[in-house]
Nucleic acid binder design. Structure first.
Length: 721
RNA sequence: GGGCGGUUAGCUCAGUGGGAGAGCACUUCCUUGACAUGGAAGGGGUCACAGGUUCAAAUCCUGUACCGCCCA
């Protein structure tokens, strides 16, 4: 018999051999005598005994090995526990150990090992077996040994009494609630994980041998009778009924005890013993959705706030916590609200499973592993808003986060950017104006930024409603930085520094209005800086009625303005094209350039008249004029169908300009080729949705028109050489 | 062994059928009256590989390779 734990032989109750083991099967049905003890144990047939391993026979110790436990169950073997809970030998007065064992000197020497730690006992046992000539050989072997993950101590399985919950019964309604979509997982892939676990659920061991927790409501009488009840009074009543029933206590005495609170308490203390164990922490946590609301009392809070709405948590506790809350919630609230529809009984309608922040190596952070990144250090360095925004921006569904300080730094810069934008607004007298209405704004720039605000607001709202926090964060980031700061504030500078009047008054109000909307949209992601700006920005205007945190989420219905978008979009494109060509042609940024619009449409002429001051400022132009034809030797830009020329004859490098235009032409040709390949495909035109086909046609027409302008520009360039 | 996920720009990662994106890094220029923790303009990708479905694939399906997580 081979073993790595010789001391456990004291708990052996059988020897197993494989039923098809040719060499040993003749022994099946016979008995063996356990050395050092004298217990007579059966030799049984079980496939667990591997004929190839060792002698082919294996000792069976059901009380101290999981596999042996199963073998013991199959063969109705006795369970002989030989350890106490410190893993020392427990032999004296151990009825199970001694049962059926005849007295002997050998047994007495074994009983002398009572109280020895298992490792010391192991040595003694081996010495005695050796002395008796019972050891064939001792060899080194490599095997897996389970260890406590905090203490590192080697774990010794042994038998204890524990409390269990019949989880299968509780799981059924929870599975049903998710199948009926009364509780929805986001992202939905986690439902598979939930079902997989719930459908294979095992009895749940809920007793724990630790100090902290809810003490188990079970009491033991002197005869071992168990009483379980909600309160100690109930237990005392049950116990009195039982012990008068079996005539342990006289009816009169029972009545006396029952009627006197002091005697009841003494009876409970002296006569009954409450289980020392406490409930598994997840058992108590499972009660959270209703116990925090006052349950089991029928409180107004419970009526008002159960069911809760969305539970936000990590996937690693779907089993431990989410599933248990569902089991408990459905069980107890069904009792609380008999006949209520499922949606009133489930603890929450949505479970949002967020990304897990991992360490640099991608490992899960855990207190026991000690690889936790302290968020407080991040906050000290970059601020709580920057950290919060980073987590939101990286919280793409179904993917974990490897936190990067660089990203946090970037969003710290974003908070600074916002602060400076607010400062700019303040310096320029942009304050909340009660007379201003976003629906009635007259200035094109106001209508444009209102339109853009509405667009951004829709994106942020839709993303939040879909639990796509990274998309929401991205949308508000782009709007604040790339639209409000990069374009809008730059565009309104001439107005703000210009003469007083209706336009300036409205522009100030619109800038302040937009900033307020930004603060509202950004508040969930950056609560501190937005709340502070909300307060500070009101110092010069009318008082705020409440904190930003208490403000309503913005609604921007009816604020779209495509005309304003088209007009300001043209300004943006023109300025961008001029800036681009400047760098490309190595024209110093400080050199003011004249701009000539050649053969411009009436619409362009009109727009130019309105926006020349703005375009000149942003594109650093000395002058804007109109002409029928493009001046010779000029740089030529195609902007939304019109040709803008920068007459720089003699300054520009004609070859470089030709190369630049040819590059644009090539890009244009590539676009046309790709679109035409699609449109020339009969199957595409026939099968693709009509709006897709129409979109491709528009793209082609646009590209062809653009190509025409570029070809003309190249032709003019040739003529001027 | 079972289950799940990943492979997209130098790095970290978005992108669920219709023109390859962001932040950082990189290049050039700019101390212009909100902000240099900033501004302007750029370069950079055979979307791991092989098949398949489709008018159309980074995206859907199958397989392969590699990486990772959870459970046993």
């Amino acid at each position: 018999m081979a073993t790595t734990r010789p001391e456990t032989m004291l708990g052996d109750v059988a020897v197993a051999v494989h039923p098809e083991n040719e060499k040993l099967r003749h022994l099946i049905g016979k008995t063996a005598v356990l050395p050092l003890v004298g217990r007579r144990i059966p030799i049984i047939a079980d496939t667990y005994a591997d004929p190839e391993k060792g002698t082919g026979a294996v000792k069976i110790t059901p009380a101290h090995d999981f596999n042996d436990f199963e073998v013991g169950r199959r063969h109705n073997l006795r369970l002989v526990n030989i350890f106490d809970d410190e893993a020392a030998l427990d032999l004296k007065d151990n009825a199970n150990f001694l049962e059926g064992v005849p007295p002997s000197a050998e047994l007495d020497r074994t009983l002398a090992l009572h109280g020895f730690d298992r490792l010391a006992a192991r040595k003694k046992i081996v010495e005695r077996l050796e002395a008796a000539g019972l050891i064939d050989k001792i060899e080194q072997t490599l095997h897996v040994v389970p260890q406590g993950d905090r203490s590192g101590a080697v774990l010794e399985p042994f038998l204890t009494d524990q409390w269990y919950v019949e989880a299968k019964t509780l799981a059924r309604p929870a599975i049903g609630a998710v199948r009926a979509r009364q509780t929805v997982f986001v992202p939905p892939q986690w439902e598979a994980t939930f079902f997989n676990w719930m459908e294979n659920i095992q009895p749940w061991c809920i007793s724990r041998q630790i100090w902290w927790g809810h003490q188990i409501p079970a009491w033991y009488g002197p005869d071992g009778k168990i009483f379980v009840a909600e309160t100690e009074d109930d237990v005392v009543a049950d116990a009195l009924a039982h012990y008068t029933d079996i005539e342990e206590i006289s009816p009169d005495e029972g009545d006396d005890i029952a009627s006197d609170p002091e005697r009841r308490a003494r009876f409970a203390r002296d006569y009954l013993h409450r289980d020392d164990d406490v409930l598994d922490t997840w058992f108590s946590s499972a009660l959270w959705p209703f116990s925090t609301l006052g349950w089991p009392d029928h409180t107004p809070e419970l009526a008002r706030y159960y069911p809760t709405s969305a539970l936000v948590t990590g996937f690693d506790i779907i089993f431990f916590w989410v599933a248990r809350m569902m089991m408990m919630g459905l069980h107890f609230m069904q009792q609380e609200r008999p006949g209520a529809p499922l949606e009133k009984v489930v603890p929450f309608h949505t479970v949002y499973i967020h990304a897990l922040v991992r360490d640099a190596a991608g490992a899960k952070m855990s207190k026991s592993k000690g690889n936790v990144i302290d968020p407080l250090e991040m906050i000290d360095e970059y601020g709580a808003d920057a950290l919060r925004f980073t987590l939101a921006a990286m919280a793409a569904q179904g993917r974990d986060i490897k936190l990067s300080a660089q990203r946090v730094e970037g969003y710290r810069n974003f908070a600074t950017k916002l602060w400076n934008a607010a400062r700019f607004a303040e310096i320029n007298g942009c304050a909340h104006d009660p007379d201003f209405s976003a629906h009635e704004a007259k200035e094109t720039l106001s209508r444009w930024i209102i339109h853009e605000t509405a667009k951004a607001g829709r994106e942020v709202t839709a993303a939040i409603e879909a639990y796509k926090f990274n998309e929401a964060a991205g949308a508000v980031y782009r709007f604040v930085w790339n639209v409000y700061c990069d374009w809008y504030l730059e565009l309104i500078k001439p107005v703000l520094t210009g003469p007083d009047g209706a336009a300036k008054k409205e522009t100030r109000a619109a800038a302040a209005w937009t900033l307020d909307e930004i603060l509202r949209l950004l508040h969930p992601f950056m609560p501190f800086v937005t709340e502070e700006l909300w307060r500070v920005s009101a110092e010069r205007g009318p008082k705020r009625h409440h904190l930003l945190a208490l403000d309503a989420w913005p609604c921007h219905d009816g604020l779209d303005d495509e005309a304003a978008e088209a007009e300001i979009g043209w300004v943006v494109d023109l300025v961008t094209a001029i800036r681009s060509v400047r760098v490309e042609m190595n024209i110093p940024a400080a050199t003011p350039l004249p701009l000539v619009l050649a053969g411009a449409s009436p619409q362009t002429v009109e727009r130019t008249r309105r926006w020349s001051e703005f375009v000149q400022r942003l594109a650093r132009l000395s002058d804007i004029s109109f002409a029928d034809a493009v001046p010779k030797g000029a740089l030529q830009l195609v902007v939304r169908g019109d040709v803008a020329a920068l007459p720089l004859a003699g300054i520009i490098d004609l070859a470089a300009e030709r190369a630049r235009l040819n590059k644009e032409l090539a890009k244009c040709d590539a676009d046309i080729a790709r679109v035409e390949q699609k449109l020339n495909n009969a199957d595409f035109v026939k099968r693709a949705p009509e709006d897709v086909v129409e979109g491709e046609r528009e793209k082609r027409d646009e590209a062809l028109a653009r190509k025409q302008k570029i070809v003309e520009a190249l032709q003019r360039l040739k003529e001027s050489e």
